[in-house]
Amino acid sequence: MIVHQFNAAGSKARQDLDDAPIIRIHDLRKSFGSLTVIDGLSFEVHRGEKLALIGPSGSGKTTILRMLMTLETISGGRIEVCGEPLYHMSRNGAEVPADEAHLHEMRRHIGMVFQHFNLFPHKSVIDNITLAPMLTQGVARADAERQARELLEMVGLADKEASMPSQLSGGQKQRVAIARALALKPEIMLFDEVTSALDPELVEEVLEVMKRLAAETDMTMLLVTHEMGFAREFADRVLFFDRGRICEQGTPEQIFTNPAQDRTRTFLRKIIAAGHRV
């Protein structure tokens, strides 16, 4: 099974939670024009940790993932990934803003799955998956395809390798997108509401894949979701965001059964009323 290759340090990872953090965010700020979206945010993520980011719409969850994926610039503060600054680099002993080469180097640590899949419509399923490993890691086509087939098997789409994305259902597209991100073997995976664009009956098949990933790999995962039941099952730690800050954090048990903050309680109540399972 493909999962074994991610599992090399497997169960050990979870015990090593007190190693140096793989992500360190310090006093991070982000504004769009005059709108401040993230305001003095600090938190750390340990290697192998599974983190769920929850919170009301507009609280900045997506923005955080996008900054980690270098899809947004930061307005202030600092992000470190694998011990190295993401948006800074040292030149002649001084710290200067990162250039594209530095970002390229740092992106090797991180992968992302998007809400709307973002598959390449002009490429078949298998070509979607093999493209990046062949281009960015110099993997030979035969090896890239072998790995892609293993990944497709893992996400339950072994028979779809020759299909075009337009021929797939939403749930299938998202599973291909997960396989595509996994093919680069990133240490950190970011998932932004990966099921919220799906028809309700297709949500489960994607969540199943994610649960297996969470259980069987030592990848660090950050998950933004409105599926509270899933967050609870998936996460080691839940961060509740409100207005660009962490309002409360803790184990899923603490956050979902005994939240300390009023705002967390209000949010959870609203989301249950809206029909999401907890």
Partner: peptide
């Protein structure tokens, strides 16, 4: 823009983004 963002997440270089994803579309 989605397509561009996917190429960033897959860490393609500027030229690779253009050549393999943007121009064909």
């Amino acid at each position: 823009r989605d397509q561009y963002e996917a190429t960033v997440a897959l860490n393609l270089t500027g030229w690779q983004r253009l050549r393999h994803v943007i121009l064909p579309q």
